Simulated assay, not measured.
Amino acid sequence: MLTPARISLGVVDDHPAFRTGLLTSFSAAGFRQLAAVGSTEELGALRPDVVLCDLEFPADCRQGRDAVEFVASLGCLVIAFSHLATADAQLDSLAAGARGFVPKSEDPQVFCRAVTTVANGGHWIDPALAGRLLRDSGLRPLARQEIGRPETDLLRALAQGDALDEYERRAGLPPGGGSALLTRILDAGRRRRRMVLPSAREYQIIELVGRRGSRSRDAAAELHIGESTLKTHLESIRDKYVQTRTGVLPSITPREAARRWAEELDGHRTDG
């Protein structure tokens, strides 16, 4: 088992005071290989074993799902953290490759335990996140049933506060059996969410209609497509938004869905 002294750790957060405080806590806990930067763009050649990555950054930086996906693409194990992230943003971070999520308000000792767990091949799923995963799997199941009774039983147990090793013993699973179930759960959630991500063209329309507020006629002209084609894309954006956001009514207009999606990409929207 990797001890803190053998784990290299990176922290990506644009608030210097928080970075400094967190690094001080990790140093006191015995972590020796530490690095901290203000954005994913500043990681450069750094390749820590585990990276704690905030989900909120200025608009000119990668943020949310994109930040996590980039750090994971470097070969680092990622734990997302945030103060304002919605339930959907937390699930999106898991879909992007994060192996867990820690609320920014948590005690530093929780961050230390999370990093050690993930560095040793595990996941960090607290009761609140387990409950969100359980609810999400019921709201948006895959076409094929890939989350069965063993997986849902595990999520229910974690949501009630059970430790993973406790559940393994009670369920008669071998050591590591719970982690294997968690991997299946997260893989299924990743596939479920990627099925409803916007296409490249839809991201362009979110930019023009959602962020800039362009009229349909003007947006269609800029993209060199017909207004009827633009309308079809907007309806697709609305449908995907409804499928990937809890509590959003299907009656939301396509233009409003594009606007909300643009706000979320900018990191301004925290409800939902």
Rank of each mutant, 00 (worst) to 15 (best):
R170C: 07
D165V: 06
R149K: 12
S179E: 09
Y167P: 04
R156W: 04
P175D: 05
L182W: 01
Q204E: 10
I205S: 04
V196Q: 07
A220P: 06
A200I: 14
I147P: 03
R193A: 02
A159L: 07
E146T: 02
G161Y: 15
L158H: 07
R190I: 12
G210Q: 06
E166P: 03
A221V: 01
Q160I: 01
E207K: 04
Y203N: 13
L182R: 01
L158M: 12
L186N: 04
T183R: 13
E166L: 02
R215C: 11
A171P: 05
E222R: 10
A219M: 10
E146A: 00
E222H: 13
G161T: 09
R156A: 06
R190T: 13
I206V: 15
D162I: 00
R169S: 01
L181F: 12
R193G: 05
R191E: 14
L181Q: 08
I147G: 05
G178I: 02
L208I: 11
G161E: 15
M195V: 13
S216K: 11
L155M: 09
L164Y: 06
G172Q: 04
G161K: 11
I185M: 06
G189T: 11
A171N: 05
D187T: 08
L164R: 05
A221P: 00
P175H: 08
A188N: 05
G210N: 00
Y203L: 14
S179L: 08
D187F: 07
P150N: 02
L208M: 12
R170L: 04
Y167D: 12
R184Q: 14
L158G: 02
D153T: 01
E168S: 08
E166W: 10
T183Y: 11
R192E: 08
M195E: 15
V209Q: 01
R211S: 13
S179M: 02
G178H: 05
R156N: 09
E146V: 01
D218V: 05
A219H: 08
D153L: 06
G161L: 11
E146C: 04
L155C: 09
A157L: 05
R191L: 11
Q160M: 10
G177D: 10
L197G: 08
L208T: 06
I185E: 03
I205N: 00
T183H: 13
G189I: 10
A200S: 14
R190L: 12
G172K: 10
E146K: 03
G161H: 15
L155W: 03
S216Q: 15
D165K: 10
T183N: 13
M195W: 15
L164A: 09
P198S: 06
S199N: 13
G176I: 03
Q145D: 13
I185H: 04
I205M: 03
